[in-house]
């Protein structure tokens, strides 16, 4: 029998130590150290190809780290013996491309993992799903198929789907980058609400306004390393590092 590692909610939500990741010979993460405290909103920014998505995906082991340690709420998830499905069920993830299940209705998208993974009864799963759909403002669309929703609605369903697993934290990989500009606001509103409820969040984004307003910490990555991190307002207003300055002058 596998011993269950104890979840420690007083420990850091995410603690990454000396993380390296290679794709073949290509070193994409070159020794990342960083942590996210409970209830913190950490925004990760940086140029394309700097390794932001790879870092995020290592945190729920959608990518296998090559070396280093990742500890989530006191559980070392890089331990080969850890039950990775269990780890993932506590970490919600939202993708740039939504990745809703197109063959299932909105409601079923939200209940299937609750029932199959969380082992909730159907009634309970439906209740949780409806609560979360209401939270993202889509209570009236539970019978729709994803294809019949706008991009912004799909992304809000995707957030509700992740929330329905009652995760301890949420990872967002450029959640608004695939959306038409007029739909971005609705999704950011939902994320802002989540943050104000105290959800721990790690957000890869190009929305500097969101980072400044909601983020507790901003991490700037370039070339597989963290170049600079700190209070978003400070970093955005007065970047210390030359590469940060160059990047921000382009996006701001």
């Amino acid at each position: 029998m596998m011993t269950e590692p104890a979840i420690d909610r007083s420990a850091a939500a995410i603690d990454v130590q000396d993380l390296h990741k290679y794709f073949g010979d290509n070193e994409v993460l070159k020794g990342i150290d960083f942590h996210v405290d409970q209830g913190q909103v950490v925004c990760v920014v940086g140029p394309s190809g700097s390794g932001k998505s790879t870092l995020l995906r290592c945190v729920n082991r959608l990518e296998e780290p090559t070396s280093g340690r990742i500890v989530v709420e006191g559980v070392e998830i890089t331990d080969p013996d850890v039950d990775v499905d269990k780890v993932r069920s506590r970490i919600g993830m939202v993708f740039q491309q939504f990745n809703l299940f197109p063959h299932l209705t909105v409601l079923r998208n939200l209940t299937i993992a609750q029932q199959r993974v969380r082992r909730r009864s159907k009634d309970e799963a439906v209740e949780v799903a409806r609560t979360n759909l209401a939270k993202v403002g889509l209570a009236d669309r539970e019978d729709a198929y994803p294809a019949h929703l706008s991009g912004g609605q799909q992304q809000r369903v995707a957030i509700a789907r992740a929330l329905s697993m009652s995760p301890d934290m949420m990872l967002f990989d450029e959640p608004t980058s695939a959306l038409d500009p007029e739909l971005v606001g609705d999704v950011l509103d939902v994320m802002r609400d989540l943050a104000s409820e105290g959800m721990t969040m790690m957000v890869v984004t190009h929305e500097m306004g969101f980072a400044r307003e909601v983020g507790h910490k901003l991490v700037f990555m370039d070339g597989g390393v963290i170049v600079e991190e700190g209070d978003p307002r400070k970093v955005l207003a007065d970047p210390q590092h030359e590469r940060t300055q160059a990047f921000l002058s382009k996006v701001l």
Binding site: K86, A162, M165
Partner: peptide, 10 residues
């Protein structure tokens, strides 16, 4: 699709 399902703990 596989990634979304795995990220939900399946």
């Amino acid at each position: 699709q596989m990634e979304a399902a795995r990220s939900l703990g399946m």
